[in-house]
Nucleic acid binder design. Structure first.
Length: 668
RNA sequence: GGCAAGGUAGCUCAGUUGGUCAGAGCAUGCGGUUCAUACCCGCAGUGUCGGGGGUUCAAAUCCCUCCCUUGCUACCA
């Protein structure tokens, strides 16, 4: 197989690009370059996802049409990639006409195959669960959780018969250990399949509710629901069904963050299966970057900006850090100190200094001409062997998406070269006038440095080019430095004696740290799911949709329609004092409160505060609540009202009254 | 609460099927060197390999149990 196709997810354009996007895209770029470096023709695709409710709302807010809005944000993504030396071959947008027609062709194909049906059932909607139940799931016609009668919602939709292919999928994943990698995510998907929780997939929305989407070819009253639309970018961008690119590059592999594992590991393969298309080769799943939280918030402007990092430290160093610091698949922690540490230790001290010292000696001893080596001795052969080993490991590990390990393997060589300089002591040979030996030693180092620079091209394309240029190697921008790096492993020559190399080198200047240490003392790393929001559709899960996109982006929620004053007056809002607070015995997130509203007896209200307030801290607190909500049973206890809070999971607070008013006071 | 993955030197992590497996890099201390980006090289560590119990001649590595972390999941009217 001599072609290679890699994709990032198409990024959801409701916000600007952040570290998570940058990581995924840089990794994809490095993979694409790696495959070029082993002699394959590659296609690297990224793009933007531009359909869905959230987009319409965000556009309205800015007084733009959805199209105007997505044009602007999509452009921002596209503008970022060159700053990170990312060279994608194509950029797909779900609003491209070619994409739209491909989605419709695909839908028609699956429809004709009988795998799409109109959803007659699945209309039993429980408001408590915010989901639909099938007849089978109901207990005596009631919601099994709330024991209430679900409402039959008449909104019908089209469903993809995904369940039909789940047994096949399980076999496929079992039979192909690297279909989903690393292993942990493969197990996760298998567990998902075992659990039997997956059902058919809702793939439509009525136009009455959502118009910003792709019309179904077999029903003009419906548009395609997000995932179906979004996933198909991977082949629409290859000009499926008829394009040459598809024939040439499919199947390829995908790169995603762990939050969108399910759609890529379950929806997408079953879709391909239904349409009779070959499966992708690999789904490569990475973790999150956690960011040290110095009260990180948008208001403090403390968020990690990829373009900012690239400007401050250079795209090469930033890319190196991303690939070296994160063990692919696991989460990693991002901080300026870690970044500076890597740059100084690995790039400046080890690699940069190696180039500097060797080139400077070559200038001094041989007028910057690559000397002709004599017979290699033991020490020299040891370096040559190590060089071959490091390269072999590097190539193999990179192919296995083990980027950190691959780089580590290469650095074994870099460190050994620094040591070799010390043990051979060229300056001593020079003083002794042992020019033959000196020539050999210098040649060994220069040759090994060349090999190192070749390997680094996928990771640091510009710096690699500079290193090679310093070694008088031909470099053509955008092209891999050699036709196939694997041909470079078996032999140690490749550097022509007589070439004139650079006199000095300052590839990676040390970054002096002074005040940075002071700033970064106390705060503990806090979880910050970088990728979470942007890559996935935002609409609430609907009938049988397995995804449940996370809500709660930092942007304020969209405005709601006006209500009449009477409707507001209908609410019985009051102030009360918490007298009793304890954890709900059967629910982790819920506190059971008994609150005095001046009613003569305490009122029991259940509230999802357990993750934000300790029970003992609640006692004595004055709270605001809605009293006349219909009582609801939650996990065995009944709640007679709702405590008012503001904020989201990240930062949640209770509403309070700023003066002392009696319990039971009305809020108006 | 259920399911899953983890807890190994100050930090980030390696440790295949139980027997040099107690390691690497960074950071720290001491020494060396001078070609070099105050760099590089050498040496030195510290670790009850989360706690406890068990199997075994032998366990970080297998079993049980407990604790903690993370993710997914349910309840948050």
């Amino acid at each position: 197989m001599n072609s290679f196709f890699i994709t990032t997810p198409i990024y959801y354009v409701n916000a600007k690009p952040h570290l998570g996007h940058a990581y995924t895209t840089v990794v994809a770029d490095a993979m694409a370059r790696y495959h070029k470096l082993i002699g394959q023709e590659t296609m690297f695709l990224t793009g933007t996802d531009e359909h869905g409710d959230k987009i319409v709302q965000a556009a309205e807010k800015e007084g733009k049409t959805p199209k105007e809005f997505v044009d602007a944000i999509s452009a921002r993504f596209r503008a970022l990639w060159p700053q990170l030396d990312v060279a994608n071959d194509r950029f797909v947008r779900t609003t491209d006409p070619e994409h739209i027609s491909a989605v419709q062709a695909f839908l028609q194909k699956v429809y004709d195959a009988g795998d799409i049906y109109f959803g007659e059932f699945g209309g039993h909607y429980c408001y408590g669960c915010e989901r639909f139940y099938t007849e089978k799931e109901l207990e005596n016609g009631l919601c099994p959780q709330h024991l209430t009668k679900p409402e039959f919602i008449s909104e019908k939709n089209y469903f993809f018969r995904m369940s039909k292919y789940l047994p096949w999928l399980k076999e496929h994943i079992t039979a192909n250990p690297s279909f989903i990698r690393p292993e942990r995510y493969r197990s996760e998907v298998l567990a998902m399949l075992e659990s039997g929780a997956l059902e058919d997939l809702c793939i439509s929305r009525p136009k009455s509710r959502l118009t910003w989407g792709i019309e179904l070819p077999f029903d003009k009253d419906y548009v395609c629901y997000v995932w179906f639309d979004a996933l198909l970018n991977y082949i629409s961008a290859l000009d499926w069904p008829d394009g040459d690119a598809f024939k040439k590059f499919w199947p390829g592999e995908h790169l995603v963050a762990k939050d969108i594992l399910k759609p890529h590991a379950v929806f997408w393969p079953t879709m391909l299966k239904s349409a009779g298309l070959p499966q992708y080769e690999h789904l490569n799943v990475h973790g999150y970057w956690l960011v040290r939280d110095t009260k990180m918030s948008k208001s403090l402007g403390n968020v990690v900006e990829p373009s900012d990092m690239a400007q401050r430290f250079g795209p090469d160093a930033f890319r190196y850090f991303l690939l070296r610091e994160m063990h692919f698949g696991s989460d990693a922690s991002f901080s300026d100190e870690a970044l500076v540490g890597r740059i100084n230790a690995d790039l400046a001290n080890d690699l940069g200094n190696l180039f500097s010292r060797v080139l400077s000696m070559t200038a001094k001893y041989f007028g910057s001409r690559v000397p002709m080596p004599a017979q290699l001795q033991e020490d020299d052969k040891a370096i040559a062997d190590l060089c071959a080993n490091s390269m072999r490991n590097f190539v193999q590990l990179f192919g296995n998406v083990q980027f950190a390990q691959g780089l580590e393997s290469l650095w074994e060589l870099v460190r050994a070269l620094n040591k070799y300089v010390d043990t051979q002591a060229p300056w001593a040979l020079y003083k002794q006038g042992n020019m033959e030996r000196l020539a050999t030693v210098m040649y060994v180092m220069l040759a090994a440095m060349r090999k190192t620079a070749l390997c680094l091209w996928p990771v640091m394309p510009v710096a690699s080019g500079k290193m090679l240029a310093q070694l008088a190697q031909p470099v053509q921008e955008g092209m891999p430095p050699v036709a196939n790096i694997e041909d470079e492993i078996g032999h140690f020559d490749g550097l022509e004696p007589g070439l004139v190399v650079a006199e000095s080198s300052n590839l990676f200047p040390r970054i002096e740290v002074k005040k940075e240490a002071a700033e970064a003392k106390e705060p503990k790393p806090q979880k910050k799911a970088q990728d979470k929001k942007a890559d996935k559709p935002q609409e609430k899960a609907a009938p049988s949709t397995a995804t449940s996109p996370a809500e709660g982006d930092t942007a304020a929620p969209a405005a709601k329609p006006n209500v009449e004053f009477d409707q507001f007056k209908a609410l019985d809002l009051r102030v009360g004092t918490v007298k009793v607070a304890e954890k709900h015995p059967n629910a982790d997130r819920i506190l059971r409160l008994e609150i005095d509203f001046g009613e003569g007896e305490l009122r029991q209200i259940l509230s999802g505060l357990a993750e934000h307030y300790a029970p003992e801290d609640m006692v004595g607190k004055r709270v605001c609540a809605v009293l006349n909500l219909a009582p609801r049973k939650i996990r065995g206890l009944v709640s007679h009202g709702m405590v008012l809070t503001a904020g989201s999971d990240n930062a949640l607070g209770l509403l309070a009254v700023d003066r002392d008013v009696p319990d039971g006071s009305e809020i108006a």
